[in-house]
Design a protein around this nucleic acid. Structure first.
Lengths: 152, 152
DNA sequence: TCGCTAATGCAAATGTGTTTGCAATAATAT
DNA sequence: ATATTATTGCAAACACATTTGCATTAGCGA
């Protein structure tokens, strides 16, 4: 063990005493701000819509040209683990990642450009659609059609 | 070539002249009513809810104990091809199959028994949820909660 | 700047759902 | 009942997304 400050040691002790901590596990708890992860975060900030792994990889490469797909996977997992991203399964596009902290919203899929968008707001009244006996706790809505840029 | 009746020959000619016809392709066009496929159809008739491959296999085995998983896959493809089944991708359960010919409906997922259900009817007004510029052609709604039998 | 080690790039390995080659079986028309 | 061939069971092969082992690189604390 090297020479850490008291602060760092306290941080490490706190981290390593967490119940699920395993040193070799994929998702580490002591982060380093790598250019790769910062690039990935930037991609989500710029795009403002749910992205698939391949999209993140492609956009990220424009920032860090050496960005590897395995690194994308590793960082997406980290960002989900840290609560910065949320993982969703789109009926047509499969696994997508979107930023957390947004209000309840739904997803639009453009059949022309094959991209996913977030639509704010919700008009669904859960109690109006569920027959007696079904207790509805949550819901997801997927809309399909043509987005503004493709429809023009 | 055997001795077919004029009717059968005409049928075959019609089938084989279809543009996409390839003899060795998985999905044949001249069906035989096998006990396996009839069992699979019966499973869907009895369950009346979307089923995954493994569910179909498990239920089907109770009718035809030798039923193989590959046969399930082959017949699900055939039944979709024939328009008897529809294939959907559930956000949590993955690929499911449901009978066609039903009115517009949505899907309920019970978090307790992990089964999918169909809920008839729809209260969503597509034009109320889409911002200007988005043209909505279709939608899917997934509800999550507890089903009647699990909630009791 | 130095030392430690988390993170990366690369390729190989993994996992899970689905397909397929083949010999044997069974559905259908006659 | 017979001939034909679609269908089956089985195991191997496949596709695809995701992961991991390892040597190297680079972030961070001091």
């Amino acid at each position: 063990m090297g020479s850490f400050t008291v602060n760092t040691i306290a941080k490490l002790l706190a981290i390593r005493s967490r119940k699920n901590y395993t040193r070799k596990k994929e998702v580490q708890t002591l982060r380093r701000n790598t250019t790769q992860r910062m690039a990935i975060e930037q991609v989500f900030k710029e795009q403002e819509r749910p992205l698939g792994v391949e999209e993140v990889h492609a956009f990220g490469r424009k920032i860090v040209k050496s960005l590897n797909q395995a690194t994308v996977y590793r960082n997406l997992k980290i960002l989900v683990h840290d609560g910065w991203l949320k993982r969703i399964t789109h009926p047509l596009l499969g696994t997508l990642y979107e930023r957390t902290g947004k209000d309840h919203h739904h997803h639009f899929h453009c059949r022309t450009c094959n991209r996913a968008f977030e639509l704010p707001g919700c008009v669904l009244k859960e109690n109006e659609i569920a027959p007696t006996g079904f207790v509805v706790e949550d819901h997801e809505i997927y809309l399909f059609g043509v987005c503004p840029s493709c429809g023009a």
